[in-house]
Amino acid sequence: MPVPLYQAKADFFRTLGHPVRIRVLELLQGGPLPVRDLLGEIDVEASSLSQQLAVLRRAGIVSATREGGTVVYALATPDVAELLFAARRILTEMLAGQGELLAELRAEARR
């Protein structure tokens, strides 16, 4: 029996639901990067980064190619970058709304 679309979407978002994975995807928006460059930008152990990259690779979100002794990662599709941009826009709007609410609460407290 095929997986319902809503379940596939939930699984996809669960795959994205880790700070290291999000950071990797953010970094890869600028283009393919070797693992050593990712390690230089993300404060985690090499084994942890490797584990998170494997999750992203298995899900088909990133691709990996070997260039000599180096593994280079890239976004599997530019749509991932668009999704991250949409998430930033949504968060910006949400946080702006919270800022407005906080300002109202502070103003009310001064009355």
Rank of each mutant, 00 (worst) to 15 (best):
residue 27 L to A: 03
residue 86 A to M: 13
residue 70 T to Y: 03
residue 53 L to V: 08
residue 63 S to F: 13
residue 50 S to K: 10
residue 10 A to G: 04
residue 47 S to P: 00
residue 77 T to D: 15
residue 70 T to A: 08
residue 47 S to T: 05
residue 24 V to H: 00
residue 92 T to G: 11
residue 75 L to N: 02
residue 93 E to C: 05
residue 27 L to E: 04
residue 70 T to H: 08
residue 103 A to R: 10
residue 88 R to T: 15
residue 43 D to I: 07
residue 47 S to W: 03
residue 19 P to S: 12
residue 65 T to N: 04
residue 55 V to K: 08
residue 74 A to C: 06
residue 48 S to L: 01
residue 11 D to M: 09
residue 12 F to V: 02
residue 65 T to M: 05
residue 43 D to M: 06
residue 31 G to K: 02
residue 38 L to D: 01
residue 11 D to C: 03
residue 68 G to E: 02
residue 73 Y to D: 00
residue 47 S to C: 00
residue 50 S to W: 07
residue 98 Q to F: 15
residue 48 S to F: 00
residue 104 E to M: 07
residue 100 E to I: 11
residue 70 T to N: 06
residue 8 A to F: 00
residue 96 A to D: 15
residue 73 Y to I: 02
residue 69 G to Y: 11
residue 63 S to K: 14
residue 99 G to T: 12
residue 89 R to I: 10
residue 104 E to P: 00
residue 34 P to S: 04
residue 91 L to M: 13
residue 71 V to A: 07
residue 57 R to E: 15
residue 33 L to F: 01
residue 45 E to T: 08
residue 7 Q to L: 06
residue 55 V to L: 10
residue 34 P to Q: 03
residue 66 R to D: 07
residue 21 R to F: 05
residue 7 Q to A: 06
residue 82 E to A: 12
residue 86 A to I: 10
residue 65 T to G: 01
residue 61 I to E: 05
residue 92 T to Y: 10
residue 100 E to A: 12
residue 90 I to H: 12
residue 77 T to S: 15
residue 32 P to A: 11
residue 58 R to A: 15
residue 72 V to P: 01
residue 66 R to T: 13
residue 6 Y to T: 01
residue 75 L to D: 01
residue 22 I to M: 14
residue 35 V to N: 07
residue 47 S to G: 06
residue 24 V to N: 00
residue 70 T to S: 10
residue 95 L to N: 12
residue 15 T to S: 12
residue 43 D to G: 06
residue 64 A to H: 03
residue 36 R to Y: 14
residue 75 L to T: 01
residue 41 E to F: 05
residue 56 L to E: 04
